[in-house]
């Protein structure tokens, strides 16, 4: 016993170091392994309040830019309005609202905190479960896909962006329809990579990369980026496709959270596949 106490006294600094490092590293590696089980993130009410304050101060700096974006968005939506389309044949084209059913609802939100230099980058946005945000919903910017909802609090949520190592958004190449998952190598915030594209077909440069919509997170066809480069992966029959993101994550201020109204239906159907008969 005395020897043990002497041991403790001799190495108490190292032991204390090991204790503190143990806490910090447990915190870090728990997050790496179970990214969903986190509670000490910037989405909590305490730090969220600070970021809200900071956002209010810096918001006006981006006002002009945001107005430009919104104007572009309005112009694009305006072009799709039925009133603005020319009726070629009055007999055939009728607008029957009951033929369409709303599947995706967009809720606007503002980014109150973002990073883009870390290995895994998370955004904090100013809507939460009160506004109907749930974990796993899609987040869309003005020009392209941003990511998926990572964790939700009452009035705030964090977004796992395309600038995380395993964002795993189902994506496809628009022309050929080949699909895979988005990844990020942690270096350039303008470029990501699309994995799982088999190399027996050629991938055209600058062809569009869009969401596949298979997980029900995003509707099919939202832009992610463009193919910039393809390189063969050694030892695998796959292309390493470099994608230039459509959205500039360094400057993004406003996003939309996408809610899929038919998600439960899709999940119920897909669960039936594995359910024993």
């Amino acid at each position: 016993m005395r020897n043990f106490l002497a041991f403790l006294r001799q190495f108490r600094v190292i032991l204390f170091l090991a204790l503190l490092q143990g806490i910090a590293l447990t915190w870090y590696f728990t997050f790496l392994q179970y990214p969903r089980s986190q509670y000490l993130t910037s989405a909590n009410a305490f730090s969220g309040a600070f970021y809200e304050m900071q956002h209010e101060i810096t918001e006006f700096i981006h006002l002009k830019q945001n107005n430009d974006w919104l104007q572009k968005k309005v112009a694009r939506l305006e072009a799709r309005q039925v009133e603005n389309l020319l009726k070629i044949d009055r007999e055939n084209i009728t607008v029957n609202d009951t033929l369409y059913m709303v599947q995706y609802v967009y809720t606007p939100a503002e980014v109150i905190k973002s990073t883009h230099t870390m290995r895994n980058n998370y955004f904090t946005i100013n809507i939460g479960s009160v506004q109907g945000v749930k974990e796993g919903m899609g987040v869309f910017g003005i020009n392209g896909v941003v990511g998926t909802i990572h964790s939700v609090d009452l009035h705030m949520s964090t977004v796992k962006t395309c600038l995380t190592e395993n964002v795993n958004i189902a994506a496809m190449i628009e022309d050929s329809g080949e699909h895979g998952f988005m990844k990020w190598d942690g270096k350039n915030p303008r470029k990501g990579s699309l994995t799982g594209i088999s190399n027996d077909r050629k991938v055209k440069k600058w062809s569009n990369v869009i969401t596949r919509g298979s997980a029900g997170t995003f509707p099919r066809g939202l832009p992610i980026g463009k193919v910039q480069k393809t390189a063969p992966i050694e030892g695998k029959p796959l292309w390493d496709v470099t994608v230039l993101f459509a959205e500039d994550y360094r400057r993004i201020q406003r996003v939309f959270v996408i809610k899929n109204l038919l998600l439960e239906e899709q999940q119920r159907l897909e669960n039936n596949i594995n359910a024993p008969k």
């Binding site: 910090a24 915190w27 870090y28 997050f31 790496l32 986190q38 993130t41 970021y51 990073t115």
Partner: peptide, 12 residues
């Protein structure tokens, strides 16, 4: 860490 979503890296 809490404020910059780095999960214990700064603390360590």
């Amino acid at each position: 860490d809490i404020f910059s979503d780095t999960f214990g890296m700064h603390a360590s």
